[in-house]
Amino acid sequence: MLHTVNKSPLDRNALESCIKHVVQGSAVLLIEDGVYGAMQGTQKSPMVESAMKEVSFYVIGPDLKARGIDESRVIDGIDIIDYNGFVDLVEEYDKTQSWL
């Protein structure tokens, strides 16, 4: 399953709850304010880095750019994708769940 998260993990628990409910082989895509979850060096980065052992993480590049988050600040191993990549993920995984 592909999970999308659109909330900053520093503000809401959507990402934390999502990570608690992913099974191995799933993917998590950070969109909108969810992209703050892709940043290195935040209080929540260790949670994401730990989850990355089991699931793949992606982040929407245009949402990063809009917020002035340079790609160099993104946790190593998180794939930066555009909306075409988003569509490909939705196609690749058999269903999606939005953590609103």
């Binding site: 409910h21 992913v22 099974v23 799933s26 269903k95 769940q97």
Partner: peptide
């Protein structure tokens, strides 16, 4: 988590 994974459509 397993229950979620076993679905066809998830509406949140």
């Amino acid at each position: 988590a397993e229950i979620m994974e076993a679905q066809d459509v998830v509406l949140s």
